[in-house]
Nucleic acid binder design. Structure first.
Lengths: 189, 189
DNA sequence: CCACGCATGTAATAGGTTACATGATTTA
DNA sequence: TAAATCATGTAACCTATTACATGCGTGG
């Protein structure tokens, strides 16, 4: 189960479920997300399995915090997972499904509006990642003296930026193509 | 439910569940996939809802085929979905999760091997889409006189090609960076 | 006093994969 | 005769989202 390994890896230092959720939301983890209702039971399962142990600590605000930390068994399981082959799953793009069947509407104006909206949505996402990348470039010793953690973080951020850039460019290219086709359609109408 | 709308859209002409599954597998549908155990119940649900109707037809080989076709209500539901805003969900990249936490192994050789393997996996996928794109370029009247269906198909294929190319390029760039870091590490060791 | 952030959880539902069950026809 | 393809389906399980339930402390 991938989420369990991600949580395990995020528990480099002891943390609560609530904290882990915040790290997902803060956009630090652009490649995955999870809800609290998924995180809490996962942590409980892992503790039962012996990968984590937890202690209750008082909180300034609100109820007691259950702080989880990795056990040796947990660290071993993580190490094994990190050494396994890359997990490349089927990616599912709902917006491509919409686009590919849009010909059935027989209305290129709809396609054009769709692509423009999509472009904006993807560009917004890209901007988030780009600014994170810019922030990283301000790190002390960038890029030659990054520590191992930041070095790996940089690689992963860059993948998000390049992949989203390619999609935004594809939107622009597609908008051009649809516009051209639309213009020709009108000329012969 | 996205799958239901995709099946609805694929039923441009009447088809069986088995046929729909084949279309997913043939790689024609690079943006989505589904198992028969998901397709059959989905078709049944849609028939109950009045989006599809089915008839039993004899088959040359094997059991009778249940052929589904869209009703007017189904066509209307599809049209509404196609006209809705682009569905941009959270993409989940398990291999980026592996990569980003790999610093905890403190062994750049593992990272390097990982990226090389990933590069090969992604390049294989890219090749599939690229050859589909090449095949499309051999279509009569390409690119200026494509019909609407092929035009939309081309746009969607191109997105797959560009997005995967970006990822392969990112792998290459990352392999370079890791190699350089590794070389420096050894020099000062 | 109410909304918001902190903090924990459960329940219901939806979406998806793997395994199981059945049986005909064709091809090696 | 064994495997592959055609063709339908169900059951069990895993993964993920949305909704529900509870309650403290702080700031407006």
């Amino acid at each position: 189960m991938i989420l369990e390994y991600i949580l395990l890896a995020m528990l480099r230092e002891p943390k609560t479920g609530y904290t882990l959720k915040n790290e997902f939301d803060q956009g630090e983890r652009h490649f995955w997300s999870a809800e609290l209702s998924q995180i809490y039971p996962a942590l409980q399962r892992m503790e039962k399995r012996g990968w984590l142990k937890s202690t209750l600590e008082p909180s300034d605000k609100g109820p007691e915090r259950r702080v989880y930390s990795r056990t040796k068994a947990g660290a071993k399981a993580l190490s094994k997972w990190l050494r396994s082959d890359p997990i490349v799953g089927m990616e599912r793009f709902a917006y491509i499904a919409q686009l590919i069947y849009m010909d059935q509407l027989d209305d290129l104006d709809v396609t054009l509006r769709f692509l423009k909206k999509l472009r904006d949505l993807l560009a917004d996402k890209l901007e988030l990642l780009s600014s994170a990348e810019t922030a990283m470039a301000a790190l002390p010793g960038f890029p030659n003296k990054l520590n191992n953690e930041d070095f790996h973080g940089r690689l992963s951020l860059r993948m998000g930026v390049l992949s989203l850039s390619a999609k935004v460019q594809w939107c622009d290219e597609s908008i051009q193509r649809v516009s051209a086709r639309l213009a020709k359609e009108r000329k012969y109408a």
